[in-house]
Design a protein around this nucleic acid. Structure first.
Lengths: 210, 210
DNA sequence: GGTTCGATGTATCGGTCCGATACATCGGCG
DNA sequence: CGCCGATGTATCGGACCGATACATCGAACC
């Protein structure tokens, strides 16, 4: 999952580890807590070894100047490779059971703008099914075993049930919008935010910070 | 966390692993998914090695009859020991940072009926603070970086923000009830569901299933 | 002018927990 | 009578986290 998130965020711009963490925290903050360096850095190494990302700054022009005099400065900027983009496209479009848990769905949803509508619908409906099952489980407990449970546990179930019902409603809206070809906020269709129709690496990067 | 949950559930009744999983899934289902056997069984072993739980059925009377003729049948029933109850009481009453994440809070809350009111208030307020911080983070992103994010990511933030606001309100209610000495559902104070005032092992077990 | 302090930045280690898998038993149903 | 799903115990590799260490840099403060 982390792998997919990193490949996704690196398609917006090259970044170093610290920045990747910040950006992912901002983008996924709604569904999962901040990712840990203890998993980030090993994953970066793994992705580099697989050839899906490379250390940037290695433009063929100004390389290897001042080899080791002013000792190596800290940041290591990574950028995604063509193979990495391929890998991302494969993984973001296919779905398994882990696609519908909190973290997995969060990552897929956060990169919906890089997916086609059919995939978006499939993911949304899969997530809805998952949440509905969870909701039914909670309803069963509340209906069939309420007298076995203390007041606090019951309250916990009730709150969980409420959260499930809300999320299902949210997903219904998103699915309806998706079917009618609109952007998620229910407004008019936007012209620039559609799925990536192009194929080659001409990213429209519109980051303006820093 | 799993350790705490197991010690808690075993105070309701002795159980074998499969049953522990089912009961915990029902009790914690609102905040975390079903626990995995891959962590359950090793944890049971660890708890037994520490002397906090023991294999039940070892009543001093009818032990070691028919040693190995009808080969050992499957289920291994565990029960909590006096040391285990002590351990549980210590851990459930003290709080650290992990007490306020989803899983940790879920476990603590699910066993609120075995805690005193001061602890309950402390946990609820700690959780509220945690969720408020998360909420502020989401508000910041929405206010300060909205133009950088695509429509789907924005929708994700909005949904997360909404969930945070709801949970804060839920916690406010629980805290208010707690301060006024009422049971969680806001009704009249209940007579049997208060914290455990007794000390010794006379559990009032009222399980009726199976 | 020095110094302290928080943000930035890379990295590792131990531990917790999950997902897949294996395997064995038992009761019911065709 | 055999098959199958629920029950039941168990392990293994891997993903991810939390704590920790350490180093740099700019700003704020004395």
């Amino acid at each position: 999952m982390l792998e997919l998130a990193i490949l996704g965020i690196l398609q917006e711009s090259p970044m170093h580890g610290y920045e990747i963490r910040k950006e992912l925290t901002a983008k996924l903050g709604a569904f999962r807590a901040a990712i840990s360096y203890g998993s980030l850095y090993p994953t970066l190494r793994r992705l580099q070894a697989a050839g899906w990302i490379t250390e940037a700054g290695e433009t063929p022009s100004a390389a290897d100047e001042v080899p080791a005099l002013t000792s190596r400065r800290g940041r290591i900027v990574y950028e995604i490779t063509a193979e990495g983009k391929e890998r991302f496209a494969e993984r973001i479009a296919q779905s398994g059971p882990e696609t519908y848990d909190d973290t997995g769905f969060g990552v897929h949803f956060a990169f919906f703008s890089r997916t086609d509508q059919a995939t978006r619908l499939r993911i949304l409906e899969g997530r809805r099914r998952r949440v509905e099952e969870r909701r039914e489980g909670l309803r069963d407990v509340l209906a069939r075993a309420a007298e076995r449970l203390d007041a606090y546990t019951l309250e916990l179930q009730r709150h969980g049930l409420d959260a499930c019902e809300r999320e299902v409603r949210w997903l219904e809206e998103l699915i309806a919008n998706e079917r009618s070809g609109r952007a998620p906020d229910g407004g008019t269709p936007q012209q620039e935010n559609g799925p990536h129709t192009g194929e080659t690496g001409d990213e429209v990067v519109n980051r303006k910070k820093e």
